[in-house]
Design a protein around this nucleic acid. Structure first.
Lengths: 204, 204
DNA sequence: ACTGTTTCTGGACACCTGTCCAGTAAAATG
DNA sequence: CATTTTACTGGACAGGTGTCCAGAAACAGT
């Protein structure tokens, strides 16, 4: 029995240790994401991230294999938050009647509040066309986003086969107006809302 | 009179000179575009372009102010070819009846034949969200593409106000299937064709 | 054939990049 | 308290980056 409790102790310790390590790793990744949002993939260096984290560059290599590993980890982690945000928009409102309008309004609001986040997403997605390292996580995010739209359709009793093309339509208008917004057009989110409503009324 | 002919001569010489210079500049830009297509914006260095051109790095600085100037010039030049290609797709066929189908088929073919070209376009467009240097040329290309769709609508006797949202729909499906194609899905162009036809039948 | 101009080279420059490691500080362990 | 393990530092390293320039080479005009 003593052996077992001893082993449990050790196991607990080991777990607590790896847990602490994981937490720190995530914390560093968060600073990484912040930096990536600001500078974009092409311009973000390890030193930028280290400086943002208030940590030496070597520390990054203590927690991550190499640059690719770090950025991949950032993107994977970033994905989680990203989808969570999107989901909270979808399920914020329960009234099925006005669900679509609220959904679209949520997206419009997100252009205002999370412009840098979405900008990074489009950056990474483009990068994935050149660097296969990001292919998997980009595919994963994109299928999650499609699923998001599918969930919306389900609640509206619309066949989910339309989810993919509908996601693409939403994505295109969203990206376009995000771009306008980032260029200083403060009415872009509003325009996005109108255009999307008009588009959806024809499609569903 | 002698003076005038003399001045004409000189003017001609000067023009021929600047013309030769411009031609060489364009030639270098072409090698730049080739390299950008292959490596993407983030990974393309002046030395890569110099090597592709069979020229010393200094020569690039002889024709271009700096890196930004070179790449901007490349993108601006690349835009011309890009739009020309797109236009030739639009006006290749004259039969109004099957114009849309041919147009979409042309786009599908372009995924196969010009995948790297389009990949670069999406790369630069994302880059423009971070670097205002590319904002202008990206806007210009995007408005040209919208005009392309508007021309298509005109020939179909459909109000051109729909051009922008329709362009966005085409862009989204095109980009999505280009991505799939680049990931090894050889049927992506075909799927693009089907999905786009289905989508358009609902929209117009 | 000589002269001035344009074109181009090859290398120097300062800086930035990711990677690595000896050594230090801190914390856990006995 | 002593020792071992973990966490972290600061700097060295090789290689890559954009930029710049003295001078060679090619060319033009006379």
């Amino acid at each position: 029995m003593i052996h077992l409790t001893k082993m449990n102790r050790l196991a607990e310790k080991a777990e607590a240790k790896s847990c602490r390590r994981a937490r720190k790793k995530d914390q560093l990744a968060d600073y990484g994401i912040t930096t990536l949002k600001r500078l974009g993939y092409a311009r973000t260096s390890l030193r930028d991230i280290a400086e943002a984290s208030g940590v030496a560059v070597g520390t990054l290599h203590y927690y991550f294999e190499d640059r690719t590993d770090l950025i991949s980890y950032c993107v994977r982690r970033y994905k989680a938050d990203f989808i969570t945000d999107m989901n909270s928009i979808l399920f914020a409102d329960v009234d099925v009647d006005k669900l679509v309008d609220h959904f679209i309004r949520g997206l419009a609001l997100s252009i205002r509040q999370e412009a840098e986040t979405h900008r990074l997403w489009y950056d990474i997605r483009s990068q994935a066309m050149f660097d296969p390292v990001f292919k998997k996580v980009v595919d994963s995010i994109e299928s999650d986003l499609t699923k998001l739209v599918a969930d919306l359709l389900k609640r509206l009793n619309i066949p989910v086969e339309q989810a993919e093309p509908l996601y693409l339509v939403l994505d295109a208008t969203f990206r376009f107006h995000l771009q306008k917004y980032l260029c200083g057009d403060h009415n872009a989110p509003e325009k996005f809302e109108k255009q999307t409503v008009a588009l959806l009324s024809k499609l569903v």
